[in-house]
Design a protein around this nucleic acid. Sequence first.
DNA 1: AGCAAAGATTTGATCGATCAAATCAGGAGA
DNA 2: TCTCCTGATTTGATCGATCAAATCTTTGCT
Lengths: 351, 351
Amino acid sequence: MSRMPTVDDVAQAAGVSRQTVSNVLNSPDIVRDATRERVLEAIDRLGYRPHASARRLRTRKSATIGIRIDPWRDGISGAVLDRFLHKLTEHADARRLRVMVFSADDPADELARIRRLREGSDVDAFVLTATTHGDERIRTLTELGVPFVSFGRPWDPETRAVPHRWVDVDGRAGVAATVRHLRGQGAGRVGWIGWPDGSGTGDERRAGWEAECGLDTGARERLSRHTEDGVTEGSRAAAELLALPEPPDAIVCASDSLALGAMIAARTAGRPALPVVGFDDTPVAAAVGLSSIEQPLDDVVAAALDLLFGPEGDDVRPNPSSDEEPANRLLAPHLVERRPGHLALDAIPGT
Amino acid sequence: MSRMPTVDDVAQAAGVSRQTVSNVLNSPDIVRDATRERVLEAIDRLGYRPHASARRLRTRKSATIGIRIDPWRDGISGAVLDRFLHKLTEHADARRLRVMVFSADDPADELARIRRLREGSDVDAFVLTATTHGDERIRTLTELGVPFVSFGRPWDPETRAVPHRWVDVDGRAGVAATVRHLRGQGAGRVGWIGWPDGSGTGDERRAGWEAECGLDTGARERLSRHTEDGVTEGSRAAAELLALPEPPDAIVCASDSLALGAMIAARTAGRPALPVVGFDDTPVAAAVGLSSIEQPLDDVVAAALDLLFGPEGDDVRPNPSSDEEPANRLLAPHLVERRPGHLALDAIPGT
DNA sequence: AGCAAAGATTTGATCGATCAAATCAGGAGA
DNA sequence: TCTCCTGATTTGATCGATCAAATCTTTGCT
């Protein structure tokens, strides 16, 4: 073939005009049935594919979503965003949207890259992840009028005052439900291992534990630990809890890293059956048979695209203006329960 | 602002013509210094950004790389591809290339998506990952003339006969070097836990062990196990090895999943200091303090882009034709050594 | 049948850039 | 001084699609 066929080629082959071919593709309902079929046949026969760049130039839409990929950090925590990205591509494909990824060194750099992608009409909406306290991206993108949705709610009053679209997972509700579940199974004292105060996400999760653990202030103090994220840290904290005169009957953790550490500590302390629950249901949790609270990423992605594009289609809606009601969704996670001892270590010969 | 400035606006502001502005951006060397500065000043002042779609329409290039993201599978194994993707975006950004991701259900679906992206001029080169025996993608893309590079060498003679660009990591050399290293540290019997025969990657890795373990056929038989990937499987295999009359002094595994299992088994068997080495240096390995053989993804990505675009620039080179020498690179991985017992479980109170 | 309104299809213009060819300016050499 | 050549800059055409408005067809109603 010397060159790819264009609308004109198809039009000629089908004996109609350019525009009719265009209509068949973009508003099939306004074309008469007989004509449409003739055109579709020609499209099929010639193997015509619309030229995306030409279309974008004219329509000023790219049907492309941009998302930043974080530089690879410590690891486990990044897994959620990777799963999110996978889900995003799947849902986007289903809507005939494309996903463009980029990297950035810091929030300022991210904003610069977003501007470039946006101004070049490469991308017409963005998904922000990992929102923080005082997130400058939300304010800036709103001012620039760049359509976006964030995965992560606004954490401070100032950001909350900026009307914008967001989707988040209700960590508090997830932990609360889990604690209730554990207590229903007979665990009288449910312990907590979380992060230091100040991270919005971590505070929410702990609040879920506090609400449902049924312990008085003193007991809550004794049965909880707050530490940086990490397996070692989780291990140490769990060992402390298990060494108490009245140790917990179950431990819920703010992350899988902490939970993995806690699980190892429980095993070492001779309590391999102690229920330990992590958060995010990362591959590690699945690998070692750890219960974990899973974020409903399918729903999160679906909601994010809904907010950006409406229930279907690929027309980006503008950011909500200050007088409208800001659009957002808070989704409940759910517990993935696994049997401790899944590794069947006890059955191993020679021990 | 009512609309984004265009070349014409800049031209007018700088008192030159469209084309000169275009030249300043694309071939700065043919523009006189004084003129160039005047134009650049105008570009800066107006905040002009070239419209990517318009440029692509004219040049028929998109400066975009496409890569498939696998549906989220079991987990640990996918981590390498995720890290690869991160690295790819970083290197691509540095070259002013964009990265578009997409998902597909199977190889046939992937090919269909590639054709669509390619025909719409959305993407002008692709990176294939996870090559397999009899990979149809390589043959098909070569026939279609779609530029690509694969991360993963061709595994069968038929595919090898198709000249194409590829980059891969020399797993055999990596394992061989690791085994040598362990023996140099006094481990007389180094065991192996790998995958069943037939996976190119796995066979290569085991070959590295065989070459350097210094054991006779019988001992090799006794000190190696082949099993599906997984923590449980690794745990079971390691337990068997450790129960031998002459157990191994160290164990090298084909993956971090297997190694994590082996590490847990070693701990359970009362040998927490047994050196265990995994492969891919996944986050899990880092989290639990497991030694692992790391793929040099930075170099892999750099090599892949070199093969596609040359040492610099964003002009895609066509696929190698049958008479040329096919271009490819085989890179050596390196061992990331961690101290077993990193979790400091022994120091935990109450044990 | 006649005529207006609704529906289907076509035509001319345009999106914003680059290519190819034409024009203009500045030196070198006779 | 004039020609010729090189290098810098400008002009007209084009990439492939959609928009907006014009034209042609059909339908519905009296």
